[in-house]
Simulated assay, not measured.
Amino acid sequence: MADDVLRILLVEDNPGDVMSLQRSFRRIAPDAEITVARDAEAAVHELAEAPHGTFGLLLLDINLPRMSGIELLRRLKSESWLSNTPMLLLTTSEAPFDVKTGYASGADGYLVKPFDPQGYDRLVRFLINTWNGDILDDADDYRGIVVAPPAG
């Protein structure tokens, strides 16, 4: 495993979303490694079992069984060894309350799940481009996927 490989912990309970993301990553960033946790408890277990620093990015669904992605985010951000790991919320909700709560809870980004394969490809391209520090040529390409923090 190369040190520059993007290792992602995807916390997602919807098999269709998992499959769509994995498919897009295979097409666009085949070297990226994705570990899937189906709920918050599985995510906590996965993080506890892996050596610190294993995952360079956490993608958290908001609507998870038993513990929400927001609660999981708060818990993970309170861990000093994880506090600098980028954690992005990935959800179908664009509700202002959810966006505000997500950012207030420590989310490093808020992404809206697309509804088609091209949308998942756009999402993965955004993640890879920003991970690599590339300048986004056309931010309009990601409109509808990336939700900015509320002003004020």
Rank of each mutant, 00 (worst) to 15 (best):
D137E: 13
L76V: 08
E79F: 11
G16I: 11
L6N: 03
L10E: 00
G56Q: 14
I8M: 07
P149E: 13
R7A: 05
R26C: 12
V112G: 03
A151W: 04
R27D: 13
I70Q: 07
T54P: 04
E33H: 11
T85H: 09
D140F: 13
L6W: 14
A139Q: 15
E49Y: 11
L58S: 00
D121K: 09
K113Y: 09
N84K: 14
S78Y: 14
L111E: 11
R7D: 09
M19W: 09
T130V: 13
L123F: 05
P150W: 00
E49G: 09
D116T: 13
L64R: 01
N63L: 12
D121I: 14
Y110K: 08
P15E: 00
T101D: 13
I145A: 00
L76K: 01
V146A: 05
L136E: 10
Q118K: 15
V124T: 02
L21E: 08
V112N: 08
R125D: 01
P65I: 10
G102I: 07
A32H: 05
A42I: 06
E33F: 12
L82I: 02
T54L: 04
I70H: 04
E33Q: 14
L123C: 03
L89W: 05
L9I: 08
L123Y: 02
E33S: 06
L82G: 04
L136S: 13
T101R: 01
R122Q: 09
R27L: 14
P86N: 12
D61N: 11
A37M: 10
G144D: 11
R143S: 12
Y142Q: 07
A32D: 07
N84W: 13
S83P: 00
S20R: 06
H45F: 15
D39V: 00
A29E: 13
P150E: 15
D140W: 11
G144N: 10
K113S: 07
R122Y: 01
A43L: 03
W131P: 07
D17C: 09
N129M: 04
E33T: 10
L136D: 08
L82W: 12
W131Q: 02
L73Y: 01
V11G: 01
P15R: 04
I34R: 03
F55M: 03
